[in-house]
């Protein structure tokens, strides 16, 4: 199965709001998610200035934006994606 693509924004705002911790997500996910995704870091994705979004840090999972991202939130989305 194709691995899920997780893009983590490392721009100023996202980094300050917690993206630095997200970068280590591979070590922190539960066993069932290990090896199921690939992590890529990106410079500012330009989302931090979008007033319609609710807040940094931003990540994209298979292109879908996750706002106020935390490791738990990302894991939930991954599980949902695997279930589909």
């Amino acid at each position: 199965m194709k691995k899920m693509q997780l893009e983590i924004c490392c721009g100023t705002t996202c980094y300050m709001m917690g993206a630095n911790r997200l970068l280590y997500i591979e070590n922190e996910v539960p066993p069932e998610l290990r090896g199921k995704f690939e992590v890529k870091a990106l410079p500012c994705m330009g989302l931090c200035n979008d007033k319609n979004l609710s807040g940094a840090p931003y990540v994209k999972l298979n292109g879908i934006i996750i706002e106020n991202a935390t490791i738990e939130k990302i894991c939930d989305k991954m599980r949902a994606m695997l279930d589909d």
């Binding site: 490392c10 721009g11 100023t12 980094y15 993206a19 630095n20 970068l23 280590y24 992590v39 890529k40 870091a41 990106l42 410079p43």
Partner: peptide, 14 residues
Amino acid sequence: IDISKLRRDDKLPP
């Protein structure tokens, strides 16, 4: 961005 050599104490984006 190469995140393979990240160090936890770096305190700046890679």
